[in-house]
Amino acid sequence: MDEDGKMTMCGDEEMEQLVNAMQTGAGDELALMERLLAAYPDDARLHFLKGSVLAAAGRPIEAHAALARAVELAPDFAIARFQLGFFELTSGEPARALATWEPLDGLPDGHYLHHFVTGLRHLIHDRFPAAIAALRAGIAANTENPPLNRDMQLLIDRSAEVSGEDGGQVAETSATSFFLDQFGARGTTH
């Protein structure tokens, strides 16, 4: 916080520099991130990106802490909240994921994250056809985050295999940088 008690946010230029460093993967991104976090400890976007990097680096405990911090700082940061819940779901904590996602019910009906959460809720309860339908609707509505579409399509394909339903189009291999691309270079928080 600055002297007026407002949160000091990382500027666009620095944010872009960080995202570039993450995309090139030169290995200095964590150091740069820590520097920016020291300067802007209340910037939820930085915590979110840190969570992404740590998740990709196979440090799940710290990744969860960073994602949770992002959501704590910015409860309306929808993509961070979605990803935190998704992280919890992939960690075998479905009840916690559902609780994390609950505030996303406030998103407009047609919002792609709304569809994705609906689909994942169905998936948790083994309602495969309903899960597939909702995830497809989310993919159709999502133009912001193509990598997220690829991952959701993978879940559709697997659901189709398990349930014998038609999964629709076959997706390309999942992006390894699950969080990164969808965040976008400008780093808006929706």
């Binding site: 799940p60 969860h64 779901l89 992939t90 960690s91 998936l123 309860h125 309602r127 398990v162």
Partner: peptide, 24 residues
Amino acid sequence: MNRAAATTGLDIVVEPARVEASLW
């Protein structure tokens, strides 16, 4: 998210390494 013989929705989505990390 690598599944050998997934039978439930949760099997499809969980990642074993994350599950253990979550316990710790």
